[in-house]
Write a protein that binds this DNA or RNA. Sequence first.
DNA 1: ATGCCTCGCATCGCGAGA
Length: 276
Amino acid sequence: MRIATYNVNGINGRLPILLKWLKLAEPDIVCLQELKVPQEKFPQKAIRDAGYDVIWHGQSRWNGVAMLSRVGEIHETRRGLPGDPDDEQSRYIEAAVGGVLIAGFYLPNGNPWPGPKFDYKLRWMARLHAHLGTLYDLEAPVVACGDYNLIPTDEDVYKPDNWKKDALFSPEARAAYQELLGQGWTDAIRHLHPDERIYSFWAYWRQSFERNAGIRIDHLLLNKAATKRLRAAGVDTRPRGWEKTSDHAPAWIELGEARRTRIGKTAKGSGDASTD
DNA sequence: ATGCCTCGCATCGCGAGA
């Protein structure tokens, strides 16, 4: 089962890009961010015609998140992150799909830093921490994915010095992310590719993509049950090279069947009852 | 130090993005 997260930067403007990518990559479940479309103007028909069930939470001009599935019906469990009834921004959607609980979200950017937008980002992260803490220990696989607007480490940015004053690379936001990981979550891409330079965003200007001057800010965090099923992970850079494309590329994981622990007999000579 | 480029729309400039 392939699960992806993709900040499309305007669902209607990028619809040809999205449909082309769906056909090319054949993801089973996709979380989208930055729809930039009011609820009633979401291109539901085109996505259903492409073979996907879909739920979405729109907002005029900014934000907006969606979830697509071609592996069965999406059972929505939540829209909106709990913890602040006055927060009207469409940034969080959650559903059970194909036996996996998926949280898809668009974390606030937080620039300029310092300032009220940065304060909102940190409050949002605190709420995310509280809520994801209630999901980690579920027996079912849980995938918490989206545009985190967060560069975790120096290894996730082309030139760290250029981002020193940016909210995405601020010590406070990075510390909050590390606290979240402290609940036990696995950063799927970093887990499988500990030493690789992998980016998911390249700015439109200065030929950033051509120079691979990118940052890694789109992440898929997995609870223990999902980590056991993790087979592959990466960023699909292909659509970033297309015309009229998003400034992000889709990040993805592949989950396999649960590994069964061998009970009783161990293989001769191995002396090991580990997983297969 | 700033803008670069691109989006949607309270459109022919602006706010926001990262």
